[in-house]
Amino acid sequence: MHIREAWKDEPLVSNSGTMKVSVWRGQGDVGQFEEFDVPVLDNQTILDVVSWIQQESDPTLTYRFACRVGMCGSCAMMVNGKPRWTCRTHVKKVRKDGAIEIAPLRNLPVIKDLAADMTEFFDKWVKAEGVFHPSKTREDPIEPINHESNARQQASAAIECINCAVCYAACDSVSSNSDYLGPAALNRAWTLVNDERDSAAEQRLKAVSGDGGCHSCHSHQSCMNYCPNELNPTASIAGLKRESVKNLSWWGW
């Protein structure tokens, strides 16, 4: 029997009533929560809930998603006040008193409903010099990289960021200082500072040491607590602080 046909015989989920789901509706700063009754299933993610509302209850609901398997980083939202990747967040784990509240990501402007405007988030990656500056040309032989080296290990520890902006939404320093580059951009800068193939370490340290740079971080560690990939941007930022002090010139920058 074909595997898809076998699935038909065994239902993967079973209904057990409905739950109240409050969803933020609106544009920009104006909006309010709207309540929906959504069927409860055994296996159900927050993204499943949002998709059910859009497909079965209100097709005008706006939200963003792509891969549905925790790879692309597009579906992050605030769930019961906490930033989460919704495709990998099970309803059972986050329901509070049987109810769920879903809102767009904190610290970012809202385009509509659950879709946050990510422009400033990605602009800050560029401001933090989160761009690779190669030290060689395509004519040069490929540079061997020692994966055991301390620098490469530090770069690798921080490299699995999927740009979901969960850390950015969780960060109180971003809330109180809109110029602050944020944990994701600084984490990216740290991977490049440690990348032996990169040629712009000094330029990058300068970019992350000015107003809104790594020194604006208060080490609350919310980024680390909420990062769905269990990265530690706080440690990356601490590394940037150390390096910036080592490179400090009292007569230059």
Binding site: N177, D179, S209, G210, D211, G212, G213, H215, S216, K241, S244, V245, L248, W250, W253
Partner: peptide, 12 residues
């Protein structure tokens, strides 16, 4: 608001 010099002075 806080550059490397100010950060350093506060830590020292």
């Amino acid at each position: 608001m806080l550059n490397t010099r100010l950060y350093y002075l506060q830590r020292v």
